[in-house]
Design a protein around this nucleic acid. Structure first.
Length: 267
DNA sequence: AAAAGCCCCAACCGCCCTCAG
DNA sequence: ACTGAGGGCGGTTGGGGCTTT
């Protein structure tokens, strides 16, 4: 039952990386790029699991990483993004250039949670502290964000570009089936005053009524191809759009359209 | 100065998704 | 349509460093 291990654990090193291992990994990736992680350790002469190599590279060795303290502005952005996205650390990291999901996750758990609690804000719900159980730091992080259970499907590598800090995520109107692109709960918005100032409302509306008034599916397909656009939920990283994307369920062809991002373009 | 406790974060683990065959 | 490899993600852990007693 279950999958086979990703590598021969008996022949791999574990634990902290040595300088020599780092140098080997850096040298190999510089020479060959990020290719097949599974075969990389062998090719690079490393006794490491491929996943371990990837993690080391992504979280520590990548040249574009920004080391050092988070600024207050970073803090606020993380808080806002967490209010919107929940524990989607990779998506949050996508909004913070040079930061990794692991780094943000750690920072959240060690600093921001405490900061919010000191403000009387529940880090899970981003609402006022109820004082009840589950609002403390000891709460399991698995329950750190209210979401429909099971957790919403994960996105297909949305590759969100980095926006300026004052972006706003357009929150889709609560759909009748209760789904939202943020994968959040059906409760009132956790952060009603959240205003990241991002306009994503390009293209036809998402509502069923609007979808019903849209052109025929053939015309729409043509328009879709012309626009070469994608769903907001895709950008926000909601996988399994059938379930999570209300605009898709409203009309199979009725995606909320967005232009794909150019390299370095912000949403 | 030493011991105990706490904190931080790099790294691991297991699950899920995508996609090629 | 099915299957499994590969990649990626979120949650958790453990060890080292720091602080407190």
């Amino acid at each position: 039952m279950g999958r086979s291990p990703c590598c021969e654990k008996a022949h791999t090193n574990k634990g902290a990386w040595t300088k020599e291992e780092d140098q080997r990994l850096i040298a190999y990736i510089k020479a060959h790029g990020e290719g097949c992680w599974r075969s990389l350790p062998k090719a690079a002469g490393l006794l490491r699991c491929g996943k371990s190599c990837r993690l080391r590279w992504m979280n520590y060795l990548r040249p574009d990483l920004k080391r050092g303290n988070f600024t207050d502005a970073d803090d606020e952005l993380i808080i806002k993004l967490h209010a919107l996205l929940g524990n989607k650390w990779s998506l949050i990291a996508g909004q913070l250039p040079g930061r990794t999901d692991n780094e943000i996750k750690n920072y959240w758990n060690t600093h921001i949670k405490r900061k919010l609690l000191s403000r009387g804000i529940d880090p899970q719900t981003h609402g006022p502290l109820s004082g009840g159980a589950g609002s403390g730091l000891t709460t399991s992080s698995t329950a750190a964000f209210p979401s429909p259970s099971p957790a919403p499907p994960r996105p297909a590598r949305p590759a969100i570009a980095v926006p300026p800090p004052n972006v706003v995520f357009a929150r889709p109107a609560p759909s009748e089936d209760g789904h939202s692109s943020s994968g959040g709960s059906t409760d009132a918005p956790r952060c009603p005053d959240l205003n990241l100032d991002l306009d994503l409302s390009v293209g036809p509306p998402c509502s069923p009524a609007a979808a019903a008034s849209t052109p025929t599916s053939q015309q729409q397909q043509q328009q879709q191809q012309q626009r070469t656009t994608i769903c907001l939920c895709y950008h926000l990283g909601v996988r399994g759009g059938d379930d999570a994307c209300s605009c898709k369920t409203a009309s199979p062809a009725g995606f909320r359209y967005l232009r794909p991002l150019e390299e370095g373009q912000y949403i």
